[in-house]
Amino acid sequence: MTDAPITQDVLTIPRKQPEGGKQNIIGLTRVALRDALIAMGTPEKQAKMRVNQIWQWVYFWGVRDFAEMTNLAKGYREQLDAAFIIQLPEMVSKQVSADGTRKYLVRIAGGHEVEVVYIPETDRGTLCISSQVGCTLTCSFCHTGTQKLVRNLTAGEIVGQIMMARDDLGEWPEHGMGTGDQGPRLLSNVVLMGMGEPLYNFDNVRDAMKIAMDNEGIALSRRRITLSTSGVVPEITKCAEEIGCLMAVSFHATTDEVRDKLVPINKRWNIETLLDTLREYPRLSNSERITFEYVMLKDVNDSDADARRLVRLIQGIPAKINLIPFNEWPGSPYQRSDWERIEKFADIIYKAGYASPIRTPRGEDIMAACGQLKSATERERKSRKQIAAETGTA
């Protein structure tokens, strides 16, 4: 087992600037925005104040036009407009499930696409965002894992998904009002559980979440943000130290033999190594507990013995277990565990002293459920190949 630095043969950030070389403000940290404003000609003594003003307009009010930033002088607004752009990822399409779940197909620089899902509930609204185009992990039960990794998303493309969803929900405060004045937030929680492995794109994810958590902007509490990893061990401690959000782990098996097949990253960092690292995470981040995600696969990982072994493995870790009924997708090699089996599994965990909620499948009718995300163009491309193979025209 090695903790050597993680490298990926992926291009990370598109270099081409939009609109004739203008720099996109979305995704710049406060420090980066300050530097950019100084480079534009803003006096250093004024730069911090200008960052605060622009930050509030962009991330609190959701303004996209410098002309609307009325506490800035007209000449300065024109200067900003000449140097910068405020640009979000493009919403290509939106599907709404019978249960109210919304799935967005989002286009980013280079024409690539990712999927974003909004799940409304009575006490909160959760947005599931993506961190990569595709995924390298090839988890065998996950539809996203059948799409090859194209590239990492930039910080702007990640936080831009949150802003795009707030646009669609009409959730930016009216001028002169605070967010709380308009009632409970429709988008109150963010989970990094969409396309990609967030810890393989650490720097961009960190910067995006810092922007989302900034109290003078979107102002999401770190306890309202959950990062889900398949177990990139060297980055877990960095996540605690540099982001501090809640941690979820795609666990899904109780033996290395089974987890090697379901979550191949286990071959690099096995269950013992992963759990040893997680035992330190709650202390480092001051989080209350780790969430273990466990997809229920019929006759694969759903036995009473698996449930009891799971309890033994996580002993000493403040934890809850999210049991996820498998969401089937075309060509998937697995079946969902029977409901009675899931309930029995949950009961064993609950009696051992751990919360074991069974996640209600959401958005299945629009392929928006956990493990089903895959860009529409990739689905279409695969379909064309299948058709060609079946007709002998490949």
Rank of each mutant, 00 (worst) to 15 (best):
M1P: 05
T7L: 11
V10A: 08
L11P: 10
R15C: 07
P18I: 02
G20W: 14
K22T: 07
V31W: 01
L33R: 03
A39S: 13
T42M: 11
A47E: 03
M49T: 12
Q53P: 04
W57Q: 01
M69I: 09
Y76F: 15
Y76C: 08
Q79G: 01
I86N: 02
Q95T: 10
D99N: 11
G100W: 00
R107T: 09
R107F: 10
G111W: 13
E113L: 06
E113N: 12
E121W: 13
D123V: 02
R124K: 00
C128L: 05
S130C: 08
L137S: 09
C142H: 09
L153T: 01
L153Y: 09
T154M: 04
T154S: 12
I158Q: 02
Q161E: 02
R166A: 02
D167G: 07
D168L: 10
M177S: 15
T179K: 00
G183R: 15
P184A: 09
R185D: 12
M193R: 01
G194A: 01
E197S: 00
L199E: 07
N201D: 05
D207K: 10
A212T: 02
N215L: 02
A219Q: 00
T226Y: 14
I236G: 07
E241F: 07
E242N: 12
A248C: 13
V249K: 04
H252Y: 12
A253I: 06
A253K: 04
E257N: 06
V258L: 12
P264K: 01
E272Y: 03
E272S: 11
L274G: 00
L275R: 07
T277H: 03
E280Q: 14
E280C: 14
R283P: 11
E288P: 10
R289P: 05
R289D: 10
I290T: 11
V300N: 03
N301W: 01
S303K: 02
A305S: 14
R308W: 05
R309C: 01
V311P: 01
I314T: 00
Q315Y: 06
A319G: 08
L323F: 06
I324L: 07
N327E: 02
R336M: 09
S337W: 05
D347M: 08
I349F: 04
Y350T: 13
S356R: 04
I358V: 14
P361F: 11
M367I: 12
C370M: 14
Q372T: 12
L373F: 10
L373I: 13
R379Y: 11
S383W: 14
R384Y: 13
I387Y: 15
A389I: 14
E390D: 13
T393K: 14
A394M: 13
